[in-house]
Amino acid sequence: MTDPAKRGSARGVDAVLHTSVATLFSNLVTRPTGRAVRVAIERQIREARGASLSILDFSKVGVIDYSCADEVIAKLLLTYGSPSRPAQAYFMAKGVSEAHRGPIEAVLNHHRILLVALEHERTALWGPAPVRLRRAWDDLDRLGQALVDEFAFNRGLQRSTAVAWLRRLVRLRVAVADTEERFLSLPAILDSDLAGRGGGRSLGSAGTD
């Protein structure tokens, strides 16, 4: 991208990358365009040299079609969600309008993947999440960050079940394990993205599958 992403650091990751996806093109249509945008984002992730959360800002995007949504969003989520991912990277979308949502939801459903989105200052989980998984994500999102015992108490779960749910959210890349015991929702990372946090922290082993 021509203008470098703003970079911050936060709890749970080494870097928060604020990326305007409309820097190269205002209308995100066609696969080659999507590839160009994705390659630029991947370069930023590489350059971050550690675990990162990329905030994909769609607020200046006019149109996004199915092909471009697939090339940018689906391929990023699939690549960095796979066990052979090139780096620890998480993604959140912001500035997504109602018109963008159709093609984005279509590719999420097609690949059965999830994306955390910021809509009108509220967070939402997009994609085909079963009801119980969505509830688990909602609870963690409400707490922001939670120790396993806190999450278990809140949901009325056995500790082992709470750990299983939290690890599942991490595996689906919609939450981060800060340590073996502490888990964060992606928006909570963004909230902690403040100067003076001392460079953030690396992901704990529980977050690396």
Binding site: N27, V29, T30, R31, G62, V63, I64, D65, Y66, S67, S97, E98, A99, H100, G102, P103
Partner: peptide, 21 residues
Amino acid sequence: PPPGVLHFSVILSEVCQNIVE
């Protein structure tokens, strides 16, 4: 409605790409 106008552009984009691809 305004989102419909953007959806229309998506339709145009996809049918045209069908030719190229």
